[in-house]
């Protein structure tokens, strides 16, 4: 997966690997992406003029007398949050094993990371379905729209991360990630951690703060 003009081993002007610098650059850029989505959520979360009002935390009675159950289930999301945090731990452990050339450890921890990631996505799919059944869709109100777009784009990032890590797991299984190539995993891990810290922000802002 090397893609640099310096073939073979490289010395760069900074001494840093091109791909590692590039993924950090990309992560820096992504900060602005999520900041814009979070801004949109904060601006719109309590706004509605038509349709039901917001009903994330408390039951809400519409002017027409219809009662909307509170929708957010904190225990479930806390589980998802914990899974994502642990997956971050697992992926650094996988990386440590990869750097030491311990293929079994690498496969184990990377496998656990993947499991956590898959469970997180599963949690989100369940949550979205649950919300839709309770009557909250993209169109219901602006909370619905901004919630689904923000968490949905985060979920998309997680999904891409799962695909990426899965590819690396297969590579590792085929013995193609020796210590010299552990950077392939380190770069994916950096992306994965970033997706994790974004959730560290989203979790309190969306689920805990009313």
């Amino acid at each position: 997966m090397t893609d640099t003009a310096h073939a073979g081993h490289l010395e760069t002007a900074t001494g840093l690997d091109n791909r590692k610098l590039a993924i950090w650059t990309f992560i820096g850029s992504e900060c602005l992406f999520f900041a814009s989505l979070i801004s949109n959520y904060l601006v719109h979360k309590e706004t509605w003029l038509t349709g039901p009002g917001p009903f994330p935390h408390e039951a809400w009675t519409s002017p027409a007398g219809k009662v909307f159950e509170p929708i957010i289930e904190i225990p479930l999301v806390t589980l998802g949050t914990a899974l994502l945090l642990f997956s971050s731990l697992f992926v650094v452990l996988a990386l440590a094993n990869a750097q030491r050339g311990n293929r079994k450890g690498l496969l184990l921890w990377l496998g656990l990371t993947l499991l956590c990631g898959v469970f997180f996505v599963g949690m989100q799919v369940y949550e979205f379905t649950h919300f839709v059944h309770k009557g909250l869709t993209l169109k219901t109100n602006l909370f619905g729209g901004s919630f689904f777009v923000l968490t949905g784009f985060h979920g998309t990032h997680v999904t891409i991360g799962v695909i990426w890590l899965f590819t690396l797991w297969i590579e590792a299984f085929r013995g193609k990630i020796p210590p010299a190539k552990s950077l392939n995993l380190e770069i994916a891990a950096l992306y994965w951690h970033f997706v994790d810290v974004v959730w560290v922000v989203i979790f309190p802002v969306v689920y805990l703060i009313k």
């Binding site: 850029s29 992504e30 900060c31 602005l32 992406f33 814009s36 989505l37 949109n40 601006v43 719109h44 706004t47 509605w48 003029l49 038509t50 349709g51 993209l138 169109k139 109100n141 602006l142 619905g144 729209g145 901004s146 777009v149 784009f153």
Partner: peptide, 29 residues
């Protein structure tokens, strides 16, 4: 560019998927 990307994503959801981010009659802005 990430900022315009998000602005365009919101517009896309408004136009294709029925959200109301920029629709003032629904409280959007």
């Amino acid at each position: 560019f990430p900022v315009i990307t998000v602005a365009l994503i919101l517009l896309m959801f408004d136009r294709f998927f029925g959200t109301n981010f920029y629709v003032p009659t629904a409280g959007g802005d």
